[in-house]
């Protein structure tokens, strides 16, 4: 039949979408197959892990709240909080120096970031630890006058101090870049509008730029904090008994490496989860006025999973 149908015939001949479930959805066979294979593999792995005689979950459970593990965990948390606090402060100073219009400050900030990002963290950690060999005494003299105070370097910078200085200053260099990018991402029109109502530079930063830059600053800062939590384990090199070190000390005696590493993983995951929840709350706070303000939620934790489920619902899986 070569004759084309006219409108009346088309309308009569063709069924309409009536909004009910009567439409046969597209079949995603590949999607089903890959989902089943992946689920089987993951299930099998978990089954092996749960039932393996060598896994010794009882050992894991025994040491989960062991005093040595607890004090290691506490030290890891202290190190993370102190180092991140130092990193945020250092990043703030370096970042604002970089954005200032003073060329000397810009250069100094650039050089500091260059050095801190360009040398290994481990070297910086050891540097602070051995600072006493460079400056045995730290003093604050008044020019041409008496010395205000002088302290033995080793008593001022103990292991913990060296660890915080090393971790915090190193991370501070990265934070400076995060701040700079965040502040530059705020539209220039916001600055002009604030200037046109006669706002001072300080007020402009505090009321207009920083609140809006926070949306871009918090996600990478959250990443940095989680990364810091795990990086603290390098303090092993200067002999601080953090979470991982204290677990290692235990399995050095009882040779139950995997069960004890599982203990460490449990606590690292617990801390990371808590940090993620905190990050999501902060993000929601600073999303004020943005279109996706309502999209940020606890769902962010398993976001990709939930999103894909939603998407497949729309596609009629």
């Amino acid at each position: 039949m070569t004759r084309r149908l006219d409108a009346v015939e088309i309308i009569a001949a063709m069924p309409r979408l009536d909004g009910s479930e009567s439409v046969v959805p597209v079949r995603h066979i590949g999607r089903w197959v890959s989902a089943i294979v992946a689920a089987l593999l993951a299930g099998g792995y978990l089954y092996l892990l749960a039932t393996s005689k060598n896994m010794r979950w009882d050992v894991t459970y025994t040491y989960l709240f062991h005093p040595a593990v607890m004090s290691g965990l506490w030290l890891t948390i202290q190190l993370t909080v102190a180092s991140m606090a130092l990193a945020i402060a250092t990043g703030g100073v370096l970042g604002s120096m970089r954005l200032s219009q003073n060329p000397v400050l810009q250069c100094l900030s650039g050089a500091t970031v260059w050095f801190l990002r360009g040398t290994p963290l481990l070297v910086q950690l050891l540097f602070w630890y051995f600072l006493a060999s460079l400056f045995p005494v730290i003093s604050l003299p008044v020019p041409f006058g008496p010395t205000l105070f002088a302290v033995d370097t080793n008593s001022l910078i103990n292991q913990f101090g060296a660890a915080v200085l090393g971790l915090g200053l190193n991370e501070g260099a990265y934070m400076a870049e995060i701040y700079r990018a965040g502040i530059l991402s705020v539209d220039k029109g916001q600055t002009e509008a604030a200037q046109s109502v006669g706002m001072s530079r300080a007020r402009l930063m505090r009321r207009i730029i920083i609140p809006q830059a926070m949306r871009f600053i918090i996600p990478p800062t959250g990443n940095a904090t989680i990364s810091m939590l795990k990086t603290t384990s390098v303090v092993l090199i200067i002999g601080l008994p953090d979470l991982l070190t204290s677990v290692q000390l235990i399995y050095a005696r009882n040779f139950q490496q995997i069960p004890l590493l599982a203990v460490a993983c449990f606590w690292y995951l617990a801390c990371t989860t808590a940090l993620t929840v905190l990050q999501i709350r902060l993000e929601r706070h600073y999303a004020r006025g943005s279109k996706d303000a309502k999209g940020v939620g606890l769902a962010g934790l398993f976001g990709p999973f939930l999103k894909s489920r939603l998407a497949s619902k729309e596609n009629g899986l």
Partner: peptide, 26 residues
Amino acid sequence: NEREISRQRREIGMVFQRFNLFQHMT
């Protein structure tokens, strides 16, 4: 200086092509 310029700008309103409302405020 910047403070004196801010004082001058207070008396001059400005309306922009792209509105430039503060996005995080009602």
